[in-house]
Design a protein around this nucleic acid. Structure first.
Lengths: 354, 354
DNA sequence: CGGGAACGTTCAACTAGTTTAACAGCGGAA
DNA sequence: TTCCGCTGTTAAACTAGTTGAACGTTCCCG
């Protein structure tokens, strides 16, 4: 038969089972009680044999819901990969499909800003396919802020990770509990007797609000605990001078005995600079990172760091979208969820040298 | 108006521009020559003001093409992330949307096999949304081989990365040129004077055909170059005994002076075991990895490794799908593309000790 | 004044189903 | 004999457009 190489249609199933189109439709949708058992079996069998599958494009048109969520998060490092894993798990369980897109090449994190136009095309690709919701990473959330009006009008719920809009909160936000985490780091270092403490921040670009908060919370926490003021540094606008800044920090006099890096990426610069200057970690210098990225435990010495909970962050973001879609919190105002983090003490921190 | 909070329809645009539905449709699709310029402008303006966007669900139904490609590849390590980046680039440029799914949690690579049922659901989610093509990583390609018949019947082109079906090649395959790469490694080690050479393979599970080929090609290359037979080892079925095997390799007598690990992951075990046994790399032991994963350059000593070209692999896979879809090679038989790799000599290899 | 562009309209069929409403055949029970 | 329940059918409207064909107006040119 000519239809054997074609995608099977519902009418093929109906014909094969010898029932009407509408009967086949109802039975396959689960409306069984109106039909005899034998008929149901016949239809189900026919569908199975022909390899028929429901067409979600059609359902999407008819119901206005595609059971699809757009995700703009690059798998940039293990933190974001784990966030993605959390999102994928929750959505898969709810029979939703995440559609992940990003712009740039994942290698150079700092430069997503350049590609604003390409990023807008990506958003368009998602909206043209009528995604039900959207999850964004901070850089995109800032870059495409102007398009949020359209999203709100279309009632597409948006969740942003690690970025809370300060002026008008127009989207849900899921972030790490910076205040508590910074305090945990401060307590750890102060309890080890450190008095000269520095902080190495990232670029603190507009979309890195988390970095600003993390640094400020840390400075505050050290002060609250009675420590001497923290001296802070940050990378240049392109994020290219990490090694130089690390050298600068370690060349101060008096030299800091402990440095808190706002992510494990920055901690790497400190390791490199310390090696070049012959400074021994942790005997002469304690280093604390943030995130517990995949390489943190493999560094020598193994890095003490705040372990974020990226899975949980991803799961919560996805769940928030689902809740907004399933009517639960359809029209409630945007919320902010703060997820805790845990201090993992490894070998890069020790008692302050006398 | 009540329609202001709704998704704008084409008929809203037509009404606003004061033209018929079909005129609006034609103009927005680009069929301009039949209409006056002023009318075109009016329609385009109306569409812009209302925020109308094309509905690809409808186009999908009508043309049978969704401009969407399913990708079953977990962002497991930097190799696969880069493969994804290559795929995303090419597809985005062609105005296609990749939909990436996976099962498992990306942490434990070896155990995707367990979740066969969940994986089948993922495939279903993709096919129910009528993806035009599919790109698979080896594990999935093996696990869902049974469903390929359905894909072929539906004329959904499939490209598999790093897995060539030996019996009946039913899908396109893109892989690293194992023979040339293994030879490059063998030449490097032999030119350094190594005579006792070992190979540490992975689990060599059914879907790790690349590992088998890599090891066999390496053994062959060493033999061809006149070296002594390579002694090879592999991990157990769960991939959990890497450290023990590494210990075992380094406890042989005579102890191998060089070990080739089929991926950088396995090289990590050798580093750890060498450190524990007090064996100095590269003075007493040369180690070569494969892939040039993100951590390879940061190891101490920096790892000598074959750098694969994951972007290119991803780009080629995506291009292959597009070519099959765009009629070019609609019905040509499945092909295998082999992509080269480059030896990156770092600090983990040196002259064999006398 | 007739013909033909240029411009635009209406009608209908098509994508793949979904859903409501009305209706029909049959057997068993009152 | 009639009515009811069970099982199923058909017709029509609906999702959001797309596309071909036929059909009107103007307006200009010869």
């Amino acid at each position: 038969m000519a239809s054997s190489s074609q995608v099977p249609r519902l009418k093929d199933v109906a014909a094969k089972a010898n029932v009407s189109l509408s009967a086949a439709s109802r039975i396959l949708r689960g409306e069984r009680q109106r039909f005899g058992e034998e008929t149901c079996v016949r239809v189900l069998e026919a569908a199975r044999e022909l390899g028929w599958r429901r067409n979600l494009l059609v359902s999407g048109m008819q119901t206005g819901r595609t059971r699809t969520v757009g995700v703009m998060i690059p798998p940039f490092d293990s933190f974001w990969v784990d966030v993605l894993a959390g999102i994928h798990m929750v959505l898969a369980q709810a029979d939703y499909l995440p559609i992940t897109v990003w712009v740039g090449d994942c290698q150079e994190m700092p430069h997503f800003e350049k590609d604003e136009d390409e990023g807008f095309k990506q958003i368009s690709r998602l909206l043209d396919r009528r995604v039900d919701g959207l999850i964004l990473w901070p850089s995109f959330a800032v870059a495409y802020y102007d398009h949020f009006r359209e999203l709100l009008e279309r009632k597409v719920p948006v969740a942003v990770i690690d970025h809370e809009y300060s002026e008008d909160q127009i989207a849900d936000s899921i972030e790490t509990d910076e205040a508590a985490s910074a305090r945990a780091v401060a307590e750890h270092l102060i309890s080890l007797g450190h008095k000269q403490i520095a902080c190495l921040s990232s670029r603190e670009a507009a979309w890195q609000a988390w970095a600003v908060r993390r640094r400020e919370c840390f400075e505050q926490a050290v002060e609250d605990l009675g420590g001497a003021p923290v001296k802070s540094w940050r990378l240049n606008a392109w994020g290219t001078d990490g090694l130089e800044i690390a050298h600068e920090i370690l060349s101060q006099s008096p030299r800091p005995t402990a440095v808190f890096a706002v992510t494990d990426h920055e901690a790497l610069y400190l390791y490199e600079a310390a090696a070049e200057l012959g400074i021994e970690i942790p005997r002469e210098l304690s280093v604390v990172g943030f995130a517990d990225l995949d390489f943190a435990a493999n560094l020598r010495p193994a890095l003490t760091t705040m372990r974020q909970r990226p899975r949980e962050i991803g799961r919560r973001a996805a769940q928030l979208i689902l809740d907004r879609l399933d009517g639960e919190m359809y029209d409630s105002p945007p919320t902010t969820i703060r997820v805790g983090a845990d201090l993992i003490v490894r070998k890069s921190t020790g008692r302050a040298a006398e």
